[in-house]
Design a protein around this nucleic acid. Structure first.
Lengths: 210, 210
DNA sequence: CACCTTGGGTGTCGTGAAGACACGAAGCCT
DNA sequence: AGGCTTCGTGTCTTCACGACACCCAAGGTG
């Protein structure tokens, strides 16, 4: 599970430190096993609820990892899921096989156990592809947010700076997002217009394009 | 395994008719089980070699299917792979749990067993996404081919007709494909210029864009 | 209270990709 | 010889996107 949330305006990744032997003390992705009568999506949702205390999340599989030697303990096949959660809904729990959990910026993760570096990279690539198909920001930001916050999310995903005017033009042209009249954010300096996601998910972009 | 090849100028899908009971007599995707010490990719390659007698193929996972009720016999988790093969390299073998194998146009598949309709749809969507990232045609067509043949492949994948001039302009601008000087196809009417794939796979498109 | 600092908000131009669109050319068949 | 079928070609328009600079509003500071 690649669990992402915005922390200090940065897109961050939840990792646990392994308490038991293979890669003991290393940072690793949280995860768990699928139960006998449970779909993969349900398993991911359950693990997420157990570890992060969140239920309403964007949860999406992006890859399978089945190399026979990827786990020295034996044959483990993993399905990678990206989870986008709102920071204010998080309630971290103690995982059974970890002695610590911490957030790291997605840009600069620490050394990871197993083939987890590859999994994180794949998750990020997947997210980058999904960025202009799905309202990624909606799952990471609170109900109302400034366009600058949304831009920071996009920049973290694509990995480079985006021009402010171009970004605003594009986002507003998509029509997924609407200004909340009269609402302003009480920031440190000039207050920003707040926005919220408008319509349903998905095809909206194409509809607007016509 | 969603196994695709060009047959009669159409992009076609290999299906097997099930000989044993769940969905007996229904058409289904070919597939098999992963061995204890075998990667998923290796398992897919092995199944493909067993069933279609081909080894050098484009083989790519696109999804995981793990609903506990998807197979009435019990819990089976499947990984979907798309395989693109050249028709002239195919040597179909008898599969153990099938009494027949046949090709169907990808556009109009028959009723399928299990959740295979969904898997086929996902494979096609994956292929559509990959179409302008990877030299899809290179894996389906013989060494040398006419642009018209390549265009038919693309049309089959995207599902609609493409303007001939626009297609040629784009394909040639990408630089992935090069004319074979002096070679012409002996067709029914005016002979066509033959082409072949030029450079390596992958980033070529971006490099040309600069 | 004046000024500075900081982030918020706005418009234009140029370029490149892609879609729409029609006709002559070459070879085969009858 | 004529007709049929496929091959091969260029222009125009539209749109998405990137580059680019300045004023505005509020809080903090001296």
């Amino acid at each position: 599970m690649v669990l992402l949330a915005i922390r200090d305006d940065r897109l961050s990744l939840l990792l646990i430190r392994r308490a038991s032997e293979p890669f003991r003390g290393c940072w690793a992705l949280p995860g768990g096993f699928v139960l006998e009568r449970e779909s993969l999506d349900a398993a991911a949702a359950r693990e997420l609820a157990e570890e992060a205390g969140v239920t309403r999340v964007h949860l999406e599989p992006f890859g399978v990892y089945g190399d026979p030697d990827r786990d020295p303990r034996g044959r483990v096949i993993s399905v990678g899921y990206v989870a986008l959660v709102r920071a204010d809904e998080l309630v971290l729990q103690a995982a059974t096989d970890a002695d610590a959990a911490a957030w790291f910026p997605l840009d600069e993760p620490p050394a990871l156990a197993f083939d987890h570096p590859r999994i994180v990279a794949d998750a990020r690539a997947h997210l980058r592809d999904a960025l202009d198909r799905e309202p990624v920001g909606a799952e990471l930001l609170p109900e109302s947010f400034s366009l600058a916050a949304l831009q920071r999310v996009h920049e973290a995903v694509v990995g480079h700076a985006i021009d402010k005017r171009n970004f605003r033009r594009k986002v507003l042209a998509e029509g997924l997002v609407e200004a909340i009249e009269g609402e302003l954010a009480g920031g440190a300096h000039r207050p920003a217009q707040l926005y919220r996601y408008a319509g349903r998910r998905g095809e909206a972009k194409r509809e607007v394009g016509r």
